[in-house]
Amino acid sequence: MPSLEIRDLFVALAATPDKPIVKGLNLTIRTGEVHAIMGPNGTGKSTLSKAIAGHPDYVITSGDVILDGKSILEMEPDERARAGLFLAFQYPSEIPGVSIANFLRAAVQARLAEGEELDATAYYKRLYSKMDMLKIDRKFTSRSVNEGFSGGEKKRCEILQMAMLEPTFALMDETDSGLDIDALRIVAEGVEAMRGDKLGVLLITHYQRLLDYIVPDFVHVMYDGRIVKSGDKTLALELEAKGYDWVKQELAATTA
């Protein structure tokens, strides 16, 4: 079974490599599983997902990330993506002048063998069916990527890309932020529709709300760059009821 293993990972900003943000994080995700990482702001959740995707602003100072038995640390971001990783951005970039259709076409084309031509008819058929599923107007295909999109439209567009690219592992960074409840439901339905034994998901979220719609198999609490507590979905509810201070106090008690 394919897996994504994060082993004793340390991550810092490339500009300040001696100040780690993620500090020795361990986590293994298998396909078919949905993991949620919860934690207060500034604890390194987004840093973790960006570093795994290969964002140039971050540097992995020690540890490893193993995808299907192979380290991805020497791979470029595009190679990681083609190997099956997908990062759903918290703040997706706006790219004026590149239409969604052309953007996704380039991404799909990039996964074909050298010299293999994309079947345009099949591509559009698939694109439209995914758009219908996510209740995205077909007119969107000619709009520039994320330009002038509302928060909800941007997040739906991220899920559309995920649906088209069919990753093995998806890192979803605060996908619920900026969404009203209707948009949240559509996004969650989209993820649920993709859920299955071919996909592993890491949901990064600050709030329990998203987990009402995408029920995780595992919940982890991240604090100060590490996972400090793991459990099942009830942990998220407990966290919601008791607040993050509860984790801090517990942590203080165990380390005291």
Binding site: D78, F86, F103, A110
Partner: peptide
């Protein structure tokens, strides 16, 4: 980075951005 994170190789990503 956004384009590369979708699997688009650096050269193709630049081509898209020049077109844009």
């Amino acid at each position: 980075f956004y384009l590369q994170a979708r699997g688009i190789a650096p050269a193709a990503a630049r081509r898209l951005l020049v077109t844009a």
